[in-house]
Design a protein around this nucleic acid. Sequence first.
RNA 1: GCCCCCAUCGUCUAGUGGCCUAGGACACCACCCUUUCAAGGUGGCGACGCGGAUUCGAACUCCGCUGGGGGCACCA
Length: 505
Amino acid sequence: MELGGSYLTAKHRLQTNSRSIRRMSETVRTRFAPSPTGFLHVGTARTALYSYLFARRHGGQFVLRMEDTDTERNVADSAQAIVDGLRWLGLDWDEGYLKGGPHEPYVQTQRLDRYHAATNALVAHGDAYPCYCTQAELEQRRKAAEACGLPPGYDGHCRALTVEQVRAYEAEGRKPVVRFRLPDEGETVVEDLIRGTVRFDNATLTDFVILRANGIPTYHFSAVFDDVDMAITHVVRGEDLFPSTPRHVHVFRALGRPTPPAFAHLPLIVGADRRKLSKRRDRLSVQQFQTDGYLPEAMVNYLALLGWSLDDHTELFTLTDLERLFSLERVSRNPAAFDTKKLDALNGHYLRQLQPADFAARALPFVHAAGFPGAEPGLLAEAAPLVQERVTRLVEVPGMVGFLLDDEVELDQAAAAKVLTDEGRAFLAEAAKRLEEVEPWTAAAIEATLRGLQEERGLKPKTAFQPVRLAVTGRLVSPPLFESMELLGRARSLARVERAAGLPG
RNA sequence: GCCCCCAUCGUCUAGUGGCCUAGGACACCACCCUUUCAAGGUGGCGACGCGGAUUCGAACUCCGCUGGGGGCACCA
């Protein structure tokens, strides 16, 4: 690209670039445009969800675009991590990154030639101009302005440079940026689907950089350019971008789209401390929730509820439900605090709803990772009904089924001291004998036998059964006892009961 | 400092002038069920930030205040 003198000579107004005129098509097109600077953040994920849902609800298209113009902050593999997160949540995109489509490429650093052509045209048209101010100069003037109580924005220093001034700067070896020229007077109106009509006084808006000295555009330009180029009809994004929207409105206009897309600025998600979610304080990445044992169904449901509601009582939604019911009109305007408790409750709900085989399949990786590489899905599926209503997250499953997987269980010492009294051990000894006779080895038969013995001895159920539970599972808290014994099998159950019976009190 | 947004139980929210002595969910507490832990059931605790104005009547409208959040980069 060329900068400098060429801008000054092209004083005539260019014909509006026909490519940038793109009527709002009837089909809704939304996009999710993350920066590959890390993992998929829960706040970002919610933005993606709402954007996706809005497109689906209206039979439109959902586009995935990578905004990697801050090359300093790009993190290797993070685009893939974001994609993985979206796929895990079940948010499929119709075109874009990794999928291609009519507006390729969908990675901004691969679109530099387009941005250059467009910024050149903007300069020629008078909507933008090269600026040679150095960072140090800007900083100095900003401070001076602030000292006088003036806004810290750009002061328009390079707005009307003479040819001589430009030559002088060029001779110094300065590399210019390109700034977008904003009106000094009047007001800019932003129409927002969630916030309504907001007016900004143009006097508070200052010229901003759209092309860096290194030839890479800034977000405020590339995002707008691509939204025009990709025929995006609805921009759904976080509220943090709301104050930048008047700038964008002007760039849309300059790019030949006098009516910008519809905007929907979502309220921010804040932490339990009501402050912006922070990588340091909060668990933020969708992947982290995945490895902590949350189900995508729960995550989607929770995120949907975090700033949106259907009515005064419906709380459970599948992604498919949401694709039918979601609406931006019902998005809340106040920032929502991320509350893990509610997520936990939803996760427990969805965990309990899973078919045993499905539950087993989802829990298996967690069981394997917890030190039971030999665990079989079949056994897990059998144990599922006992475990499902007792866990909140998948990571808790191994702890619950460990006694079925370990050849030997280690008895909780404190529990043993409490429960393996003389009375308890006597019960265990007799129980072992009777258990040998139980036929068939089913929970019902085991229960009948043990309950018979307990009543015979005049013991309270607790006094009788807690020692058995400890013997069989190693703990005083476990899945239902008789069902567990059935699953464990006669041989292992008996061995454990006998062993505990013989232990010294 | 300047600009913008927001304001109902601890949290997510319903509520768009009378249906509200403000509804639901999560959390919490109690009870029931029960061999443990859960799950489930029943009940309870718990909110319209403050001050004006409009109105016969304000959670709902308007103004001010207070409080919270966001933004003012060659980050997005």
